[in-house]
């Protein structure tokens, strides 16, 4: 179970208090009624679902109730940082050698092919 730092509560809390809310930094177009079908598809349907560093939204739904953003490594499940909603995309801090990303379960199962 993840341990998530809520930037509003300024504390690490159990994942049980949170709800994931999809990819972050996808702004609703100001002129939404005027955008093309392709632009709408890009905004509403298409997601990157990247392996590794992702920016995502969480809501501390059973805590302070606030939505916030997180930078998480989907391979190691490590949270690199969390920050308040409305803030621009934050650069992730450099990780030291001791915090080297460890691959998935599958990848640790040997490199035999």
């Amino acid at each position: 179970m993840l341990l998530i730092h809520c930037p509003y509560c300024e504390e690490d809390r159990s994942e049980l208090e949170f709800r994931w809310a999809g990819e972050a930094h996808i702004a609703r177009p100001e002129n939404i009624s005027a955008i093309s079908d392709e632009e709408f598809a890009e905004f509403f349907f298409l997601r990157n679902n990247e392996k590794g560093l992702t920016y995502e939204r969480w809501r501390h739904i059973h805590g302070c109730g606030r939505f916030f953003n997180a930078a998480r490594d989907t391979v190691s499940d490590r949270f690199l940082m969390t920050y308040k909603a409305g803030m621009p995309k934050q650069p992730v801090p450099e990780t030291g050698a001791s915090e080297k990303t460890v691959e998935t379960y599958e990848a640790t199962e040997g490199d035999a092919r």
Partner: peptide, 13 residues
């Protein structure tokens, strides 16, 4: 005929 680490180890879950 391969060294053990090359055959891999199953993950403990």
């Amino acid at each position: 005929d391969r060294p053990i680490p090359k055959v891999g180890l199953t993950t403990f879950r």
